[in-house]
C-alpha cells in the first residue's frame, strides 16, 4: 500500500514561508493533482515528497514509514520533470535503462524490461536515438518510460505537459490517464492548468500562497468552490463573478437582479458559470446589458455582455448571432447553481 501522508509539513527559505504548516493524505492508487497559480508552493510540496527539498518541520510518511531523512533514491518514487530531465549524452535505451542499472539489475533482465516499457509508451522504434533527436512529445514519453520502468510505488509529475503544444498535450493527457489506470500507482501531479487537473485527477488540491484551500474531487470543486479564489481559478471560461450586495433576498448589481436565499449583506460577490445562463429576449431578465463580444468555440458561442464595469459571459448555441452593442439579457437556467461569496474574506456564503 503506497499511501503518502504529509503531517504538518512546513517549508521556509530563510524568513520566507513558502509552504505554511499543512497536512495531506494521498490514498493508495490515487491520482492527486496539486493545482494552483505560479509560486503557490505546489512544486515545493512535491519536491519535499521527492526528497529534493528539505522540510523545515513536519513529517512525510510513505507506506506508513517516516521518510524525512531518507535520500530520494530510497523513497521508492519516480519523478517526471517539466523539462523532462533526460540525460542528453545517453540514448533513449540508456536513459530508460539507467535506474535499473543503478539498482544492479542483471543485463538480460534490464534488456527485457526496457523493451517492455518502451513498447508500453510506443518508443520501441526510437531506442537508439539521443534526446536531441526527438520531438517534445517523444522526449516526454522517454521521461515517462524512465519513471515507470522500475515500477515505483509513487509517481511524482511536475508539470510534465507544460512544454508541449496544445494538441499534443491533449493526446498525452489521455495517455497519462490510461497509464495510471493500467498501473494503478499512486500519483502526485503538479500543474497550473485547471483543465489538466479536472481531466486527470481523482482528487484535486487547490493551492494558494502555500496553503491547500480546497481538497476534493474535480466535480465537487467545480460545483462547490470553497472560496472566491477557487471559484475564479477553476473553469474555462471562468465563473462569472459579479460585485454587488444582497438586500431583501435579492442580489443587486449594475443591471443584475437575482433572487437569493441570503440575509442582507453588503460586499457580496455572486458567481455563476457561463453554461448555467440562458440568453433570453426578456427585458426583465436577471442580467441585462449590451452585447460586448461573440466568440465561436466550435460547439458553442461565448456571449459576453457588459453593464458598467462588470461583464458577464454565457455559453450560447453555436448558431447564436446578434449585433455588437445591441441589448442582451441573460437568465439563470432552471436549477442553476448560484454561488455567493464575501468580497472581503472570499469565503463562501451560499
Amino acid at each position: 500500500m503506497a499511501e503518502v501522508r504529509l503531517v504538518d509539513i512546513e517549508k521556509k527559505y530563510g524568513n520566507f514561508l513558502a509552504v505554511p504548516k499543512q497536512s495531506l493524505t494521498i490514498h493508495d492508487g490515487e491520482f492527486l493533482v496539486l493545482l494552483g497559480p505560479s509560486g503557490c508552493g505546489k512544486t515545493t510540496t512535491m519536491r519535499m515528497i521527492a526528497g529534493l527539498e528539505d522540510i523545515t518541520s513536519g513529517d512525510i510518511m510513505i507506506k506508513g514509514e517516516r521518510i524525512n531523512d531518507k535520500p530520494p533514491k530510497d523513497r521508492d518514487i519516480a519523478m517526471v520533470f517539466q523539462n523532462y530531465g533526460l540525460y542528453p549524452h545517453m540514448t533513449v535505451r540508456q536513459n530508460i535503462e539507467y535506474p535499473l542499472k543503478l539498482r544492479g539489475m542483471p543485463k538480460a533482465d534490464r534488456k527485457d524490461r526496457v523493451r517492455e516499457t518502451a513498447e508500453k509508451v510506443e518508443l520501441d522504434a526510437l531506442l537508439e536515438r539521443r534526446p536531441s533527436e526527438l520531438s517534445g512529445g517523444q522526449r516526454q514519453r522517454v521521461a515517462l518510460a524512465r519513471a515507470i520502468v522500475r515500477t515505483p510505488s509513487i509517481f511524482l509529475m511536475d508539470e510534465p505537459l507544460s512544454n508541449l503544444d496544445a494538441k499534443l498535450r491533449v493526446t498525452m493527457r489521455a495517455e497519462l490517464k490510461h497509464l495510471h489506470h493500467e498501473l494503478g500507482v499512486t500519483t502526485v501531479y503538479v500543474t497550473h492548468d485547471q483543465m489538466e487537473a479536472m481531466t486527470l485527477a481523482n482528487r484535486v488540491a487547490v493551492m494558494r500562497e502555500g496553503k491547500i484551500v480546497q481538497l476534493d474531487t474535480p466535480k465537487k470543486i467545480y460545483a462547490e468552490p470553497a472560496d472566491l479564489f477557487v471559484a475564479g481559478f477553476i473553469g474555462s471560461p471562468s465563473m462569472n463573478l459579479i460585485d454587488g450586495a444582497v438586500k431583501d433576498g435579492v442580489f443587486r448589481a449594475d443591471g443584475v437582479e437575482v433572487p437569493v436565499d441570503l440575509a442582507d449583506h453588503d460586499g457580496v460577490v455572486l458567481g455563476i458559470r457561463p453554461e448555467e445562463l440562458d440568453i433570453t429576449q426578456d427585458p426583465g431578465a436577471a442580467i441585462s446589458g449590451k452585447l460586448y463580444a461573440l466568440e465561436l468555440t466550435g460547439e458553442s458561442t461565448l456571449v459576453t455582455l457588459r453593464n458598467g464595469p462588470s461583464s458577464v459571459c454565457a455559453r450560447g448555441h453555436a448558431d447564436f448571432e446578434a449585433d455588437i452593442d445591441s441589448p442582451c439579457h441573460l437568465a439563470p437556467k432552471e436549477g442553476a447553481r448560484i454561488h455567493l461569496f464575501d468580497r472581503a474574506t472570499g469565503e463562501r456564503l451560499l
Binding site: P72, G85, Y87, Y98, R103
Partner: peptide, 14 residues
C-alpha cells in the same frame, strides 16, 4: 546543465 538531469539521477539512485 539543467538541474533536472542531476535531480533525476539522484531519484534514479545515483
Amino acid at each position: 546543465i539543467p538541474r533536472e538531469t542531476e535531480e533525476a539521477a539522484r531519484i534514479d539512485g545515483a
